[in-house]
Design a protein around this nucleic acid. Structure first.
Lengths: 280, 280
DNA sequence: GGGCTGTCATAATGGATGCTTATGGCCAAG
DNA sequence: CTTGGCCATAAGCATCCATTATGACAGCCC
């Protein structure tokens, strides 16, 4: 029977990668640097591959480390959710509005888990255009909104920055001039930042396809119509761009969560909010 | 900062539930009974709720234990997958045929993970009717098929039994006479076993709706057209039947995996097969 | 009713595990 | 050339944890 990983080691590893340094991770976790060093080493011997490139200026994940990272983060998230939600039996209702790119990711699975765990509670997830979202928020149908910060219907309680990556369809040359681009057609905030990024890089481009849904964009990229800027979680297997220099650098997106003031203190909304924050 | 669960403790807990006894779980894990007893106790104190009902005839999960169980199993599965797949860089192609009820569950997510982990490999998942599946298997397009044992296109390499549960739409009375039933319309093996179960229970029934896709069945149940027999993973939040005696007992389904002999020894197919086996 | 056999819980011991302190090497910036 | 960041290594010591050795309890069979 295969051995198990240990969650504490995964936490050390993830913290080290996020902190960019074993020492900082150590203080963040309330331990000493040799302890963390030892833990990472143990994890590496369990996995069988080196996970971090050590240098006098800090650490960076190796190839194997980058592969392990998403698994580690999901395990940590599941562990935290199991720990806080088991045996609580929440009831009530919570409406959640999500940016479409987020709804397609593992977030919806986490929310489904939460709903299954609390049979007395109901969750409603919707991802619609920003104006409709604002209305749903104002009327109280949606209690939590996770979206780009400028599009939030209320003040953000917290924010996170996420990178964008290029998705390249099969048969598309990322060096083409002009570059065929697949875009969201609706008022999408990163639509403009993507185009600005290309203008800054003096890169000629043309709109090859527009769609107002993520599945449409994905289908267009898959069909080889052009390249698109997506969140990494929505990349399909063959779409990653392996040549980092062929395409302009993309800006990060800043996501934030707005919570309707009327739900202050509601335990179910609390649980959903912290699940979102953990998973995002 | 919240404490972490420990994977070893989760493994002990899951093994104990599956074995129905702490002692058997201990020998299965190669430890002694007090060690397991101690581990379960530690997990209980970490979660803050008792997880097992102890009795002189064995153990049964408590309510909190049943809630924790799916989390624990997913964490174990993720851990095993991370452990065996990181840094392996598999290449090639693998076609997978899935029973539609399985394709809708977390299986597809696990396969997507696998594909993302090995950018040089391609995976193709299809879930079609049994005859089409057999043809895809015979022509070599599909290398692994996970389906009910009688429908497999080749001899099963391994099998698992899974329970079926009743899904009850909102507004449907599970005690109605005759019982309105939502069915898969195609040659589906458990269609007949479901109807036999009702005949055995002398329960009059009528077909309220037929569909040949899972989403159709789910939509019908959701709309309150009747009850359906599903795998637990496909139950939507509000559909669980809380009155255990109102509906006849459902038989288990026996799932098996067939592997095309030409793929013997192929590492990618090995990896996909073991991922399926772990997750199912 | 009295073994017998299964279950789980508890207590004490000894060894392994893992954190800490203390040190050294390395590189870049001042 | 020194200083201050980083990481690795070594040795001591506390803690943790699995083991052995028990005890309590329930069912089964003679």
């Amino acid at each position: 029977m295969a051995k198990d990983l240990e969650i504490a080691l995964l936490r050390s590893f993830v913290t080290a990668v996020r902190a960019g340094s074993i020492s900082r991770a150590a203080t963040a976790l309330g331990h000493t640097q040799p302890a963390l060093s030892q833990q990472v080493r143990k994890l590496e011997s369990a996995v069988g591959h080196p996970l971090l490139h050590r240098s006098p200026s800090g650490v960076l994940p190796t190839r194997a480390g980058e592969e392990l990272l998403p698994y580690a983060e999901r395990i940590l998230s599941l562990s935290a959710q199991a720990l806080t939600e088991t045996g609580r039996a929440l009831t009530g209702h919570c409406g959640v509005g999500l940016l479409e790119d987020l709804a397609a990711s593992q977030l919806s699975q986490v929310l489904a888990d939460l709903a299954r765990l609390h049979p007395g509670a109901t969750l409603e997830v919707l991802s619609v255009a920003d104006v409709a979202m604002r209305e749903a928020y104002d009327t109280g149908r949606v209690h939590l909104v996770l979206n780009e910060v400028p599009a939030l219907p209320g003040p953000p309680r917290w924010t996170v920055r996420r990178p964008l990556v290029w998705a390249v369809g099969t048969g598309v040359d990322p060096a083409a001039q002009p570059l065929p681009v697949v875009l969201f057609s609706n008022p999408c905030f990163w639509r403009t930042s993507v185009l600005e990024a290309m203008d800054r890089a003096d890169r000629p481009w043309r709109v090859a396809f527009e769609s107002n849904s993520l599945v449409g964009v994905l289908a267009a990229v898959r069909a080889g119509l052009g390249v698109a800027a997506l969140m990494p979680a929505n990349l399909e297997p063959g779409m990653a761009c392996h040549d980092a220099d062929a395409l302009p650098v993309l800006p990060d997106v800043e996501l934030g969560l707005a919570r309707h003031p009327r739900t202050e203190g509601d335990p179910l909304t609390d649980a959903v909010e912290s699940a979102l924050r953990r998973t995002i």
